[in-house]
Design a protein around this nucleic acid. Structure first.
Lengths: 228, 228
DNA sequence: GAGATTACATACATTCTTGAATGTTTGCAA
DNA sequence: TTGCAAACATTCAAGAATGTATGTAATCTC
């Protein structure tokens, strides 16, 4: 065929992303040829190579499109000042899990990212981007945790970085496992309970910055040193 | 070369597994040819095809060898009666994370499983095995949680299945993230604190079986129905 | 100690996949 | 309205990778 109008071109681009998502999901990224992607979108490889440099480029665009909403949620929450930061974290967790539980595209994207692709040397660029978004996630969570410290919801010597790691690890784990077997349980219903467990854990036994091995309740002086 | 003695053959088999682990880890499973594996082990593809049917078979053996110790730990703990089941769970978590933090082979295996391979149609058999071990893990954790209910460490209407999912998800998440960036923090040191967060969360806000949306503290009768 | 079998190495045919090169309309700007 | 470039399709050359088939020397068995 010949040249399309701009909107048509954008449509085929979207179609290619959708097709890639489908095919990647059930064949795996590495094992699917761009021919298959093109065929599944109803075009030829020419179209693929027009819109994307590479399979990695295509995959990258795919992830970006799929993860944008979640990242936006996190960024927005991280920049806001909350009266009840821990509650904000809780709803953030629930919202994230609910989105995963209800949006098929999000499910597909995370399924591919978690189980249907390899982050090795050839996809180093993709891995790098993924690391960057992971870091952003961690930073935003930690901001909320710091707010929680300020609001006296968490003790002053809370290791907010480690606490943030706990939270993101929990989220990653839940998503990783659920997306692998979506029929195992009703994630949407379970989300609040799961979020509660983690938040309650942070409240009850927050990770501390100090060595903390002996005398758990007796910090040094009256105030911890500024440490910053 | 020619025929080796039985012990020598076993040694080359191990060498192949080690080589595969190395090469898979930095090239990705799908992107490495069996030729590369063989070369890295100092043999030819003939040896690979002698010891393993297939790349999937090789990968399967790899996972099995690498995950055995963890599975053994879990199985043993699941079959034992504990006086303090939650403490047992805690040490189980810490032991698992410590093993990951200290054993390079375990690190490599989990790195490959989490980030360097695709579980798609062609590796369906591997995925199935992985599911099976996941299920076993969940079952064992749930056994300990049921013991915790019996010992009154957790309320009678605790949703032990969901609680077990929380625990395994947390562990998966921590391992998934740490293995991706082992230098980000000292997992061995952090392990007890992280375990504490989760265990404390289960203590403070255990997921309940009943609908629980309204009247959080008022179950039906004096005893919950047997439900089984 | 002779044959059967093991533990590989080597060779071969086949299939995929990629990247690039080239072709072909047609929308769009001047 | 012309001309250029966009939006693809088609073709081609070349390199892997796989599975199998076959070769072979040593080891184990009886």
């Amino acid at each position: 065929m010949a040249r399309r109008t701009k909107t048509e071109a954008a449509a085929t681009r979207e179609a290619l992303l959708d097709a890639a998502l489908r095919v990647f999901r059930d064949r795996g990224v590495a094992h699917t040829s761009l021919e298959e992607v093109a065929a599944s979108a109803g075009v030829t490889r020419g179209a693929v190579y027009w819109h994307f440099n590479d399979k990695a480029d295509l995959f990258n665009a795919l992830c970006e499109r799929g993860q944008m909403p979640m990242e936006a949620m996190l960024a927005s929450a991280g920049e806001t000042r909350h009266e009840d930061p821990l509650a904000a974290l809780r709803t953030l967790m629930i919202d994230g899990l609910t989105r995963l539980a209800t949006d098929p595209r999000t499910q597909a994207v995370f399924d591919v990212i978690f189980h249907k692709c390899e982050f090795a040397t050839e996809f180093a660029s993709v891995a790098k981007r993924q690391h960057t978004t992971d870091d952003g996630c961690l930073v935003n969570v930690e901001r909320l945790l710091k707010q929680a410290v300020t609001r006296r919801q968490l003790p002053r010597n809370t290791d907010t970085v480690l606490a943030a790691r706990c939270m993101t690890a929990f989220m990653v784990g839940v998503m990783h496992e659920w997306v692998q077997r979506p029929d195992a349980y009703d994630l949407k219903r379970a989300a609040p309970k799961m979020a509660d467990v983690l938040i309650a854990g942070l409240r009850a036994k927050p990770p501390r910055r100090v060595a903390s091995a002996r005398r758990a309740t007796a910090p040094r002086g009256k105030r911890a040193p500024a440490a910053r």
